[in-house]
C-alpha cells in the first residue's frame, strides 16, 4: 500500500491495482464492451483490469461519457461483456449475482411507485424467500440505518429526492449484499442533501463492512468518500490512474474537505481527469 501511485500512468498496458486471491472480492480482467449500433460498432470500454478488495470502498471517477455506467452494468451482470471477465468471489459473473445490490442514479424510476417505502425495501427479501419475521427486522434495521424509520407507510413519490434515494439505499442494504454498486446515486439531489448522503454511505459502509464500488463524475465526492479512487480515461475507456486515498478514516465534511492532503489528492485526480478529457491516454492511443 503506497500512498502515491503516479507510476501507473507510464506503463505500456495501464491497469488498476490487482490483489492477491484471498484479499480479492471482485476481479475485473480485460473487460471490453463494444455496442453494435446502426452506425456500426462503438467501443465503449476497451480494456479494464482491476481488483476490489474485501470490505473496500472504491470510487470510480471519469469524464462524462467515459463508460462508467457501462462498466457498472457489466459488473452487475446486467449487460454482457464483449470480452474479458468479471469474477465475484471466484465465480464468473454472467447474470446479476445474488450477493450484489445496485443503487441506480434514477431513484424515482428504480423505486416501485405502487409500493410503500417499507414494501419497496421488503420486496427483494420477499422474493428471496426470507421469512416474514426476519424480513420485518431487516426492513426496520435498514430504514433506521438511513434515518427513514418514521415514514415506512409513505409512498416513495411523496418524499423528497434525497429521501427517495435513502429508500433505495435501504433496499440495497436490507438485501445484505457483499458488494454494493452505486451508479452516480447523488447526481440528481441538491448539494446539502448530497453531503448528508455521502456521510450516510460512509457510516453504512463502516457499520456493515460491505464492499462498495461507487461511480461518480464528481471529483470531490470521489476523494471524500473513497479509500481508493480509480480514474477512467475518455471513451473507449481504459484505466487512467488508480490511487489510494490516505485520508483518516474519520471524515467530516468541514474538516476533511479543508485538509491540505484532501486538496492535494483532489488536485491529482482533477489533473488526471483533465488529461483524460483532453485525450491523453495512458495506452497512447
Amino acid at each position: 500500500m503506497q500512498p502515491e501511485t503516479e507510476n501507473t500512468s507510464t506503463g505500456p498496458m495501464p491497469a488498476g491495482k490487482t490483489l492477491s486471491d484471498e484479499d480479492t472480492l471482485l476481479r475485473v480482467r480485460g473487460l471490453q464492451k463494444v455496442y453494435q449500433t446502426d452506425a456500426g460498432p462503438i467501443e465503449a470500454v476497451r480494456d479494464l483490469t482491476f481488483d476490489l478488495g474485501r470490505g473496500e470502498l472504491a470510487c470510480l471517477v471519469g469524464p462524462s461519457g467515459s463508460g462508467k455506467t457501462t462498466l457498472l452494468k457489466c459488473i452487475a451482470g446486467l449487460m454482457n461483456v464483449t470480452s474479458g471477465e468479471v469474477i465475484l468471489d471466484g465465480q464468473e459473473v454472467t447474470g446479476p449475482p445474488k450477493r450484489m445490490a445496485v443503487v441506480f442514479q434514477e431513484y424515482g424510476r428504480s423505486l416501485f411507485p405502487w409500493l410503500r417505502v417499507d414494501s419497496n425495501v421488503e420486496l427483494p427479501l420477499k422474493n428471496a424467500g426470507i421469512d416474514k419475521a426476519q424480513r420485518r427486522e431487516l426492513v426496520q434495521e435498514a430504514l433506521e440505518a438511513v434515518g427513514l424509520d418514521h415514514v415506512p407507510r409513505s409512498y416513495p413519490w411523496q418524499l423528497s429526492g434525497g429521501m427517495q434515494q435513502r429508500v433505495a439505499i435501504a433496499r440495497a442494504i436490507a438485501y445484505q449484499p457483499e458488494v454494493l454498486l452505486m451508479d452516480e446515486p447523488f447526481a440528481a439531489v441538491d448539494a446539502q442533501t448530497r453531503a448528508d448522503l455521502e456521510d450516510l454511505i460512509r457510516s453504512v459502509w463502516k457499520k456493515l463492512g460491505v464492499t462498495i464500488l461507487f461511480v461518480t463524475h464528481d471529483i470531490d465526492e470521489s476523494v471524500y468518500l473513497g479509500q481508493r479512487v480509480i480514474m477512467l480515461s475518455s471513451s473507449p475507456t481504459v484505466i487512467q490512474d488508480d490511487i489510494d486515498i490516505d485520508l483518516p478514516a474519520e471524515r467530516t465534511q468541514l474538516e476533511t474537505r479543508s485538509a491540505p492532503r484532501f486538496t492535494e489528492l483532489r488536485h491529482h485526480v482533477y489533473e488526471q481527469i483533465q488529461a483524460a478529457k483532453q485525450g491523453f491516454r495512458p495506452d497512447g492511443d
Binding site: 455496442y35 453494435q36 449500433t37 446502426d38 462503438i42 469524464p63 462508467k68 442514479q105
Partner: peptide, 13 residues
Amino acid sequence: MATPKRGKPRRTG
C-alpha cells in the same frame, strides 16, 4: 455516462 441526456449507443435490435 454522467448525464442522462447523452445519447446512449443504441443497440441494434
